[in-house]
Simulated assay, not measured.
Amino acid sequence: MGFAFNDVQRALIHNVRSFVRNEIIPLELELDPDESELRPSVLDGLRVKTKQMGLYNLDAPEEFGGPGLDTVTRTLLAMEMSQHRAGLYSACYGAFGQPDMAQLYEATDEQKERYLHPVLRGEKSSFFALTEPAGGSDPARSIQTRAKQDGDDWIINGTKVFISGADSADFGLVFARTGDRESGREGITCFIVDADTPGFTVRRVIHTLRSGHYPTELVFEDVRVPGSAVLGEVGQGFAMASERLTKNRIPYAAGCIGVAMAAHRLAIEYAGIRSVFGQKLADHEGIQWMLVENEIDIRSAALVTLDAAERADSGEPFRTEVALAKIVATEASGRVVDRAIQIHGGYGVTKDLPLERWYRELRIRRIGEGTTETQKMIVSRDLLRGRYAGLMDR
């Protein structure tokens, strides 16, 4: 298990790092500290540059015009892309393309033409509607939104919560129960629902610790969609969702680590210039230890997350590794930013610096994409059922 970067990875890291520091960070100096979107003309200009870099639509396979990155490389770039004020929930403001909707790569040709290709071209945006009021960490049992067949159509009724981007999207992937509750995971189907479909409503924006672009609550009241709106097979929607959620937790964890790296740099720099009691902060043992603890947290999280990425690339099962990465990265990054704020004192909680925004948004990361407790359940089950090969047993 070694993580020496190859020449291609080094070049990509350098290019993305330069893009963030030369294009994104200077731009943010002119924006509200909680901003998460750019004017279309500004975003279009940034996308021209990422296309020239060959890095537009980072998550798309090569056959769909993407760079076809392996998971390790994608993870390394996620660490770089998040190192700016809005990096956690608006990494580079979408300059590298739309969020990945991997399920659409398995769509029918007609569905690809209507939805996938416009998304890849930046002409349409989408949302992913899985979580419900009954619980987000156990979607297989908590989904109560139902879809009943009516001739060739399906009629959807239910509610979704904490759905990102639905208030501005053109369509969404909506997961509804088509079997009885006893059917569990096998009774959930994915539907493509256009945002202008009668009966579909964005009931409200949910204001959270997150800045700028907030999640939403959605209502489906007798939403009628044609049979052609089914994505994949009837009853197999949860398998599609689960695959996406598992792999997506790797760049999700990496984004947290990138923010921790940026916060750590700020803390080191400030400790070297700020004087208290006749000494620089960096000369105080307590501050030195805090910086060392930051370094330990960052390196530990990065190694665990890269291990998960390497495992994903190997084609072997990687569920346990991903769960561990999600736990370690989100928890450790929160500690790093907390220490960085403490080192900065009063300035650390002002909007002059990005630390307070990162502090708020990292707290959500311990809940989003499956809570820390849910990830621990995944790991413990694999350990107790003998499904997990220990680090020294591979």
Rank of each mutant, 00 (worst) to 15 (best):
Met1Thr: 12
Phe3Val: 10
Asn6Thr: 09
Asp7Tyr: 13
Val20Gly: 08
Ile24Gly: 01
Glu28Cys: 04
Glu28Leu: 02
Asp32Thr: 12
Pro33Met: 04
Pro33Ser: 08
Ser36Phe: 12
Glu37Gly: 08
Val42Pro: 05
Asp44Asn: 12
Lys49Gln: 11
Gln52Arg: 14
Gly54Glu: 01
Ala60Leu: 01
Gly65Met: 04
Gly66His: 01
Gly68Glu: 03
Arg74Cys: 02
Thr75Asn: 03
Glu80Gly: 09
Ser82Arg: 12
Gln83Ser: 13
Ala91Glu: 00
Cys92Leu: 09
Gly97Trp: 01
Pro99Met: 08
Pro99Tyr: 09
Met101Lys: 13
Met101Gln: 10
Tyr105Trp: 09
Glu106Ser: 13
Thr108Ile: 05
Tyr115His: 12
Leu116Ser: 03
Arg121Lys: 14
Arg121Thr: 00
Gly122Tyr: 11
Ser125Asn: 12
Phe128Gly: 03
Thr131Ala: 12
Thr131Lys: 14
Glu132Phe: 11
Gly135Glu: 04
Asp138Tyr: 15
Thr145Pro: 07
Arg146Met: 05
Lys148Thr: 14
Gly151Tyr: 12
Ile155Cys: 07
Gly158Met: 10
Thr159Phe: 07
Ser168Thr: 15
Asp170Trp: 09
Gly172Gln: 02
Ala176Cys: 07
Ala176Asp: 00
Arg185Cys: 01
Glu186Val: 05
Pro198Glu: 03
Gly199Glu: 00
Gly199Tyr: 07
Thr201Val: 14
Val202Asn: 07
Gly212Ile: 08
Tyr214Asn: 11
Thr216Tyr: 10
Glu217His: 15
Glu217Thr: 14
Asp222Thr: 06
Leu231Gln: 08
Glu233Gly: 06
Val234Ala: 05
Val234Arg: 12
Ala239Arg: 15
Met240His: 06
Glu243Leu: 14
Lys247Trp: 07
Arg249Ala: 10
Ile250Lys: 04
Ala253Gly: 10
Ala253Gln: 04
Gly255Pro: 08
Cys256Tyr: 06
Ile257Ala: 07
Gly258Ala: 05
Ala260Val: 04
Ala263Asp: 00
Glu269Gly: 11
Val276Gly: 02
Gln279Thr: 11
Gln279Tyr: 13
Leu281Cys: 09
Ala282Gln: 11
His284Arg: 14
Gln288Lys: 15
Gln288Met: 13
Leu291Gly: 07
Ile296His: 13
Asp297Phe: 13
Asp297Arg: 14
Arg299Pro: 03
Thr305His: 05
Leu306Phe: 07
Asp307Pro: 12
Glu310Cys: 07
Arg311Cys: 09
Pro317Leu: 06
Ile327Leu: 10
Ala329Asn: 09
Thr330Phe: 04
Glu331Leu: 08
Glu331Thr: 14
Ser333Val: 01
Val336Ile: 12
Val337Phe: 01
Val337Thr: 02
Asp338Ile: 00
Gln342Val: 14
Tyr347Pro: 02
Tyr347Gly: 10
Gly348Asp: 01
Val349Thr: 14
Leu353Ala: 04
Trp358Thr: 00
Ile367Pro: 00
Gly370His: 07
Gly370Val: 01
Gln375Ala: 12
Gln375Thr: 02
Leu383Cys: 09
Leu384Asp: 05
Ala389Asp: 08
